[in-house]
Design a protein around this nucleic acid. Structure first.
Length: 478
RNA sequence: CGAGGUGUAGCGCAGUUGGUAGCGCGCCUGUUUUGGGAACAGGAUGUCGCAGGUUCAAGUCCUGUCACCUCGACCA
């Protein structure tokens, strides 16, 4: 009726225009706002609270795997940036430069960090001397700047917030192990906390990080079938160590270069979370990351005892979940829509009728399902219900992912799948850059990764027909 | 960076042949309301994106410029 009409007016239907729907959710849920700086967003309180929960969770996982946090400068002298050739070539087009301090022109211009490999390397060269100094397991939580041509809130912004881990190891094996360990940390975080199923794999040479020997990735599928690279972990070999002269004396008193890694995850995952779970009523937050997990909406709150009872519920529940109460003078219906828009996983309605019956009405954000719960054991039923919601969001996303991965063994089949079926296509590849580029030119799909779980779908490359080396997941990507 | 679109109140928009700046929602005050975006009464809010130009007069016409959106290109 008029309510539905209004909601449709404020949020474009997801099936009608996915991009507009995404923008509408970000704006209506008050996750972020546009700023007066091109391509830079203001992360509003809800978006910030979600990011803080991501940070808390990830930081705990980093600490559990032995890492410590540091803070590096935001500027990189031009000379330092240029020490590693592939790296600087990769980032040069999107670097912002500081040329003046006050009115004075700088002797050497400073780049606003697009990533901090060079700063960490410069520092590691100073502090690593002996095998006893290894490994170095550093991480930092900062923002970086990349002068992107097209920006979208969370998905690609000029400045974005992230963490970047940078480690130095005595052996290649140890560094490779670290690379995989952190990729698994990302995968676990995405699956357990954001309820986003991922595919783990390796990037092709074309898609790997500038300066990396190998790049590993966790790829997620959005609701429209497009891929979003959600976290990456890089093995650098000793390339940076040689460029920056990071050497240590081993147990035999021989000089050795260190072996390095880096890994990062950014505010982009908030975009992933939106595009995986949210719907036409707005944001849907997985309970594990939701700043408010339960919103209590009192009904007829002016009536004797209603607010008291609602506050009593809140006090009891706050021991076990993140709960809030909306006692503003809005109409209940308005509050329902508002908290749905903002993604609160569970709403509890309590009014005179419920109080009389010693019950509350619980409404799930993900399914809209209403259940009546006894007030007596809410501290057990509510956390359990939140776990159910978390699991069910994951299951639904996992089902969409597996339903929309197709296999192709013939070129015609491949191009048709890419063109007509939103999702990923698995196909064999010879390993040549030429084929990868041809596939991109002709289908606009890129190689997302060489999944760790390989299968021999056929013996020949989907593109050129030469003997196949790898199974690749192809898809259109953000 | 290319093509297209949009800039007028917090948000969404209208504004005719150039002639006093408008509407809806929201906001503020009060009263009544409250189980899916309440009703009534009263009230506040504008460098019309910005800079030039034409004109007695510009939101409206001209030139330039900036920003944002969509689709491409580019991109770890």
């Amino acid at each position: 009726m008029s309510k539905e009409k209004k909601l449709v007016e404020s949020i474009t239907s997801r099936s009608e225009n996915f991009s507009q729907w995404y923008t509408d959710v970000v704006r209506n849920a008050e996750l972020a706002a546009y700023s007066s700086v091109r391509g830079c967003m203001i992360v509003r309180p809800l978006g910030t609270a979600i990011w803080e929960n991501c940070q808390k969770d990830l930081d705990r996982r980093f600490k559990e795997t032995g890492h410590v946090n540091v803070l590096m400068p935001m500027f990189i002298p031009e000379g330092l940036l240029q020490k590693e050739k592939d790296h600087v070539e990769g980032f040069a087009p999107e670097v912002a430069w500081v040329t003046h301090g006050g009115e004075e022109k700088l002797q050497e211009r400073l780049c606003v960090r697009p990533t901090s490999e060079t700063l960490f390397c410069d520092h590691y060269a100073q502090i690593i001397q002996s095998w006893r100094d290894l490994p170095k397991l550093y991480n930092q939580w900062v923002s970086v700047v990349r002068w992107e041509k097209t920006t979208r809130p969370f998905l690609r912004t000029t400045e974005f917030f992230w963490q970047e881990g940078h480690t130095a190891h005595a052996t290649a094996e140890e560094a490779i192990e670290e690379t995989h360990r952190m990729l698994n940390v990302y995968a676990d975080f995405l699956e357990e906390t954001l309820a986003i199923p991922v595919i783990k794999g390796q990037k092709t040479d074309k898609e790997k990080f500038a300066g990396a020997e190998e790049t590993y990735t966790v790829e997620a599928m959005m609701h429209d079938g497009k891929a979003l690279q959600s976290g990456t972990s890089h093995f650098f070999g000793d390339g940076f160590a040689r460029a920056f002269n990071i050497q240590y004396s081993d147990k035999n008193n021989e000089l050795q270069y260190v072996w390095q890694t880096s890994w990062g995850m950014s505010t982009r995952i908030i975009g992933a979370m939106i595009m995986v779970h949210s719907d036409d009523s707005g944001l849907v937050l997985p309970p594990h990351v939701a700043p408010t997990q339960v919103m209590i909406v009192p009904i007829a709150q002016h009536k004797e005892g209603v607010l008291d009872k609602a506050n009593e519920l809140k006090d009891a529940l706050k021991e076990v979940v993140r709960v809030d109460i909306d006692d503003s003078d809005r109409m209940p219906g308005w509050k329902f829509s508002e908290h749905e828009m903002r993604g609160v996983p569970l709403r509890l309605e309590i009014g005179p009728r419920d109080i009389k019956n010693n019950q509350v009405v619980a409404v799930r954000r993900d399914t809209g399902e209403k259940t009546i719960l006894s007030i007596d054991d809410l501290t057990e039923t509510i956390p359990a219900l939140l776990e159910t919601i978390q699991q069910s969001l994951y299951d639904a996303a996992a089902a969409r992912l597996s339903e929309r991965i197709y296999d192709a063994t013939e070129w015609a089949e491949f191009t048709q799948l890419i063109a007509e079926k939103p999702g990923f296509v698995r196909a064999m590849w010879c390993g040549d850059l030429a084929c990868e580029e041809q596939i991109k030119d002709e289908t606009s799909a890129t190689s997302r990764c060489l999944p760790f779980e390989q299968e021999q779908l056929s013996d020949t490359c989907i593109c050129c027909g030469k003997p196949a080396k790898h199974m690749v997941i192809w898809g259109k990507a953000y």
